[in-house]
Design a protein around this nucleic acid. Sequence first.
DNA 1: GTAAACATGTAACAGGTTACATGATTGT
DNA 2: ACAATCATGTAACCTGTTACATGTTTAC
Lengths: 170, 170
Amino acid sequence: MSLRHALLGLLTERPASGYDLLKRFETSLANVWPATQSQIYTELTKLAGTGLITVAAEGPRGRKEYALTDDGLAELRHWLTETKPQRNTRSDVLLRVFFLGVLKPEEAHEYLAELAGLSEQGYEELHQLAEAVDWDDDDLSVYGRIALEYGLRFHAMRRDWAKWAAEQVG
Amino acid sequence: MSLRHALLGLLTERPASGYDLLKRFETSLANVWPATQSQIYTELTKLAGTGLITVAAEGPRGRKEYALTDDGLAELRHWLTETKPQRNTRSDVLLRVFFLGVLKPEEAHEYLAELAGLSEQGYEELHQLAEAVDWDDDDLSVYGRIALEYGLRFHAMRRDWAKWAAEQVG
DNA sequence: GTAAACATGTAACAGGTTACATGATTGT
DNA sequence: ACAATCATGTAACCTGTTACATGTTTAC
């Protein structure tokens, strides 16, 4: 149930409406924890119901601005310190690799080469993003940069692996 | 809907019962596409219903042995060659990193150091596995080895990144 | 005036997890 | 005789996706 914690986490920064949070999910969290509009609004209603957040203000167009409560912050801290990261990593990319023997070697090679290309692309995109961001020294920047570095290393690793694998298949 | 394709993929090798397939999911596919007993039996019934597999034989204890049909093989090939890998990668590990600013630096450091440890452990386990397996030259071995190499590189990357990140927070 | 952006909510469905329920066969 | 393993099936519940439905405010 990490969507809940993603919302709590974003609200530590400042109060925000469902719409604001949706935008945050579409930008900074898109590659880490994607969520849909429907999901976000539903979860916010639940969170307000259990007292982890409150409606701090109401604005035009029915806008509701949510703020983190003490209980909400405690729950977030608990999640960060006490619970083990253990989510199953499903990878359809890797699942396909398991069954590439069904294809002709040329087809398998093509798949792996394409994968290398996609990873290179992903790398480039993050690289551009890293250059564009104006990093300062606050917490968000520090940890944002660490998360971005992960993305860079991940894509580079995958690119190199896919190239190597494509060679193996010939 | 990749569970379906994982089942079809395993059945290219040889006919198998739900129970057999469950064991395969618990071993070789556990790190790539985990599935529960309940899910597997339900999906097998559906697949038999749409003609992608058939009940080739029935054994003791109500055992049903499923075999891939021509349609099933065609569907698998289609999945491998025509559909783009695009599954969203959710990472609760990385999501936590985004919000580490909520914690004291020592706590954040601890989280990252622990992550490095877990990755090292994952690496070691795969390494042992790689040594234990008797690799021969068939398709399964070739692509199994490629998948395993991915796991090794992945864990190594994560270990190094977590160590580096822990230093940043120090 | 009208398009884009702001803003929320709900219903239907697909995929996945946990738990319950049942029974047959094999090995000791 | 008893436990372990083999073997299947179903129900309840949670999470996530897609689509529908509605209305307001701002900018041009």
